[in-house]
């Protein structure tokens, strides 16, 4: 990933960390489901691909993804210029970085508590 893409990925990440709550569920397995659910749907929306909303959980993820994508398009003009393979690349890197910040690299000792 070149510096420009990295810089853009940081902007997308910063937006999530500042404005969203869905990535901060209290347990690691929930965070995994949330990050995967919202970001995969956001990628599909950005690429104009169909999105599954058939279950209540999928619908919740779609709702968060749609608001995220709309914010991205409003805030970052370059988002609408990206080609589908660039979108997939940047969103994949974003997903990995978000998983690192909120799950694998997180210092939150409660994440692996087995009970709610």
């Amino acid at each position: 990933m070149d510096d420009l893409m990295k810089d853009r990925m940081d902007q997308l990440l910063d937006h999530i960390m500042k404005k969203c709550l869905w990535q901060f569920h209290s347990r690691s397995w929930d965070r995994k489901v949330q990050n995967e659910g919202v970001l995969s749907k956001a990628t599909q929306l950005l690429c104009g691909e169909p999105v599954d909303t058939s279950t209540p959980l999928a619908k919740c993820h779609w709702v968060d993804a749609l608001c995220l994508v709309n914010d991205y398009k409003r805030r970052f003009a370059w988002v609408s210029q990206l080609k589908p393979d660039e979108i997939k690349e940047i969103m994949q890197a974003l997903h990995e970085r978000l998983d690192h910040l909120t799950i694998t690299g997180s210092l939150n000792l409660e994440l692996n508590d087995q009970h709610y």
Partner: peptide
């Protein structure tokens, strides 16, 4: 059909349990 969760600190536990036991999703706002 939906749990709209405001203060996750004090009440996420019941939302998580409602999701597991009754399949009601949680939307943090």
């Amino acid at each position: 059909q939906l749990n709209v969760l405001e203060c996750a600190r004090s009440a996420e536990y019941i939302c998580n349990e409602l999701r597991v036991r009754y399949g009601i999703p949680r939307l943090d706002i």
